[in-house]
Simulated assay, not measured.
Amino acid sequence: MPKVQDYTIAFFEKKLTKSYIENDNFILPTNILDNLQKYDKEVVVIFDNGTFFMKYKIGGKVRLNRGWKDFVDAKGLKEGNELLFQVYDVEDRLTFIVHMKEEIIDID
Rank of each mutant, 00 (worst) to 15 (best):
P2K: 12
K3I: 03
Q5K: 08
Q5H: 04
D6C: 12
T8F: 04
A10G: 06
F12R: 00
F12I: 10
E13K: 13
E13R: 11
K14G: 10
L16R: 00
T17M: 09
K18Q: 12
E22M: 13
D24F: 05
F26M: 13
I27M: 14
L28Q: 01
P29R: 11
P29E: 13
I32P: 03
L33D: 02
L33A: 08
K38A: 11
Y39D: 08
D40F: 08
D40Y: 12
E42W: 02
E42L: 13
V45Y: 01
V45H: 03
V45K: 00
V45Q: 02
I46L: 07
F47M: 09
F47A: 03
F47H: 05
N49D: 12
G50I: 04
G50S: 05
T51Q: 13
T51D: 06
T51C: 10
M54Q: 07
K55F: 06
I58P: 04
I58Q: 10
G60K: 15
G60R: 15
G60A: 15
G60I: 13
V62Q: 02
L64I: 07
R66N: 14
G67D: 07
G67K: 03
G67F: 07
W68R: 01
K69P: 02
D70K: 15
F71D: 01
V72C: 01
D73R: 13
D73M: 14
A74M: 09
A74I: 08
A74N: 14
K75W: 07
L77E: 03
L77I: 06
K78E: 12
K78A: 13
E79N: 07
G80D: 03
G80K: 06
E82D: 00
Q86A: 07
V87H: 00
V87W: 02
V87Q: 00
R93G: 01
L94Q: 01
T95N: 10
F96G: 05
F96K: 00
F96I: 06
I97M: 08
I97H: 08
H99Y: 12
H99F: 14
H99D: 11
M100R: 13
E103F: 09
E103V: 10
E103H: 11
D106E: 14
D106A: 11
I107E: 13
